[in-house]
């Protein structure tokens, strides 16, 4: 069977390209929502942790955060996904995509938290002192002085975390979500040819990652130029 024939069979016949297209949309939807959830969780945890480290306040929330970080970073994301789907939401009828967003968001939040905490701790303590000496309280100093600087420093690392998450969602098929990876696999199971469908899946991921990485690189250079003003 020639390439053209194989291509026709895998993608054109019975509109099989739709598996890839619909899968891609699902992958992007899960990634986008999980990135948002991860950022919210991550910033929250980072602020609690750095507040504890700098002021020794919020001991109990800090303990909870540390437990969260240890458990999430110490177990595979697939296991977390399975537990959230089959254990936590076992008797609750919710959409699988929702479960995936929760699982990947909670997972990503742990990594975002450590990135952001590093960013906060890298800001000179003199900035905090200057803010406090003017009469600003701790939250105001964080909001207006520390976070804008920390956020700018970690923006490239956060963007890279989002790119990693895009690839990590490829395990969503474990709970029978028809994402991009699963789409290619469905085609494989129908046509009994593995090469083209899986290659197509790989190329689509690669193109997305390369384009996004380029964008991050550009962002990074722009931020660096900003620093030299």
């Amino acid at each position: 069977m020639g390439f053209a024939e194989s291509f026709r069979q895998n993608f054109i016949e019975a509109d099989r390209w739709r598996y890839l297209w619909d899968g891609l949309c699902t992958t992007l939807l899960i990634t986008a929502l999980a990135v948002c959830l991860g950022m919210i969780l991550g910033f929250l945890v980072a602020i609690i942790r750095s507040t504890y480290l700098r002021t020794k306040k919020l001991l109990i929330p800090d303990l909870i955060c540390r437990l969260y970080l240890t458990v999430i970073r110490g177990t595979p994301v697939v296991v977390q996904l399975l537990i959230i789907y089959f254990v936590i939401f076992a008797s609750v009828p919710v959409s699988k995509t929702f479960v995936a967003v929760i699982a990947f968001g909670i997972n990503s939040g742990a990594y975002v938290a450590e990135i952001v905490r590093g960013g906060i701790m890298s800001i000179d303590v003199g900035q905090l002192e200057a803010g406090r000496s003017l009469g600003l309280n701790y939250p105001q100093t964080m909001l207006y002085i520390i976070m804008p600087q920390a956020f700018k420093n970690v923006l490239p690392a956060l963007a890279n975390e989002a790119i990693v998450l895009l690839k990590e969602t490829s395990v969503a098929g474990y709970i029978a979500i028809a994402d991009l990876t699963k789409g290619g696999d469905i085609i494989r199971s129908q046509t009994f040819s593995a090469f083209l469908p899986l290659l197509a899946v790989a190329v689509i991921y690669l193109v997305m990652v390369v384009v996004l990485t380029r964008l991050v690189g550009r962002l990074e250079r722009r931020l660096a130029a900003n620093d030299r003003r």
Binding site: D124, G126, Q127, E129, S133, L134, L136, I145, P148
Partner: peptide
């Protein structure tokens, strides 16, 4: 304490201006 600090200005060795 913040009320007190508003009435006392402080100048630091390393300036600590807000770079952003």
């Amino acid at each position: 304490i913040n009320q007190v600090r508003m009435r006392m200005g402080m100048v630091f060795q390393h300036f600590n201006l807000f770079p952003h």
